[in-house]
Write a protein that binds this DNA or RNA. Sequence first.
DNA 1: TACTCTTGTGTCAAAAATACACTATCGGCG
DNA 2: CGCCGATAGTGTATTTTTGACACAAGAGTA
Lengths: 253, 253
Amino acid sequence: MLTKEELEEYCKTARESYLPHISIDCVVFGFHEGLLKVLLLTVKNEGGWYLPGGFVLKDEPIELSANRILKERTRLDEIFLQQFHVFGDPQRSKQHFDMYKDMLPPKDNWFTNRFLTIGYYALVDFCDVNPSPDQFAATCSWCDLNDLPELKLDHALILKTALDTLRLQLNYQPIGYNLMQKEFTMPELQKLYETILDKKLDRRNFQRRMLGFGILKRSEKPRKGGAHKAPFLYSFDLENYEAALKEGFKGGW
Amino acid sequence: MLTKEELEEYCKTARESYLPHISIDCVVFGFHEGLLKVLLLTVKNEGGWYLPGGFVLKDEPIELSANRILKERTRLDEIFLQQFHVFGDPQRSKQHFDMYKDMLPPKDNWFTNRFLTIGYYALVDFCDVNPSPDQFAATCSWCDLNDLPELKLDHALILKTALDTLRLQLNYQPIGYNLMQKEFTMPELQKLYETILDKKLDRRNFQRRMLGFGILKRSEKPRKGGAHKAPFLYSFDLENYEAALKEGFKGGW
DNA sequence: TACTCTTGTGTCAAAAATACACTATCGGCG
DNA sequence: CGCCGATAGTGTATTTTTGACACAAGAGTA
């Protein structure tokens, strides 16, 4: 948590550096042990969680803003990012960072401004990410999508909208590619689809269909180590994947 | 075109009333005589066309801004509006309203600011709209999508993105409902789909599929007057339509 | 009344989706 | 070391959906 002086300094810098009234919030999805995860952070001395977010530099394309913001939290560059909605209710940011609300008069206080926020969702390989807090965050960590804590502001709405978008785009965005590790087994990939769609799929039909797209390469050696029959390892054939995405995968789930 | 004094006055009011750096641009689609149309406007003493747009009042939800902006141009209330993308390149608005560029120094000149623009597309019944210009526009009129004039700024990109979105959403948004008149014939509806998708569809299969959705009601009396067999008139069964949209129409075209 | 154009409709074949059951192999355990 | 339990791999029969296609009916016009 910032002191009054630090807050003053921050607000001054923010006014000089950022576009006013515009923020970016990111819903970072990861997939681990059969569960969809989202990156969330807490703020010291405040209950509730936030989506990672930030602001747009005065001369910065918004895609880069989103990238920059995520790089600070995940240390990752080249993240798959997708803009999905702008949230523009004047009430939405009224309670932003409560603890700073009364520390400065409204005209000086960046955090009492109205903000439109541009929602981006990101898909990352869970294992690549080492969540790190920033100057405002107390903690930054993965949360299970089935077991979400209470979110501040309208961040629950933003998250829900992101998830809806993800479901809708499952057929024409490289969602599997970005969420899985380089090599994975067919049951793992199926589990991802089942988790996103929140329904069971038939094992054989899933396999037939996935292979039918021609976007997977089967590795020579299976994954050993489990207490059961060793599954084959697959990886995405990026070239075919890109081509298939242009067409859009036929049909839906 | 505004005089320097009027411009000064406008900029002053704008700064007082609107959120800075944020604009809204609308792609208004209509359908008439088998052709997709878009509402465009010209500015006096300037070549090129613009999408209708405007700004967000300081305490106004952005959905209402878009509605308000369109109401000024179309006189319509309750328009079907869909947010589809934010365009945030810092260069995109550099050449906004060229003729006002040098009339005021940049710090006073609203139009030399950077603007992120929120893209909305609207679907309207062509016949309901009486396009009317505003204080900046010289003319406001429907343009054929196949025969577009040159667009200013990044408005060609915005238009293209809107159209791509429209195509993608054809299966889970009430696009037919909003673009057609209350009553219409099956060939007319088919023509709409063909126009949006830019491809021919089979007459019989189209009919079978559309009727299969159970969202159409066939009227008792056919449309007379043409020089040929009188086609049946249909209208949307709104209740079923809403229900079907929730599911998403199965498959694609 | 014959002609032309457009609409309405049914059927068949191909493709896709669905439902379903058996075999193979790994590690663990007795 | 062989049996057990659990998971993975695979094919087929059935149903549903799509796609291609042709002919009859009705409205105005000549």
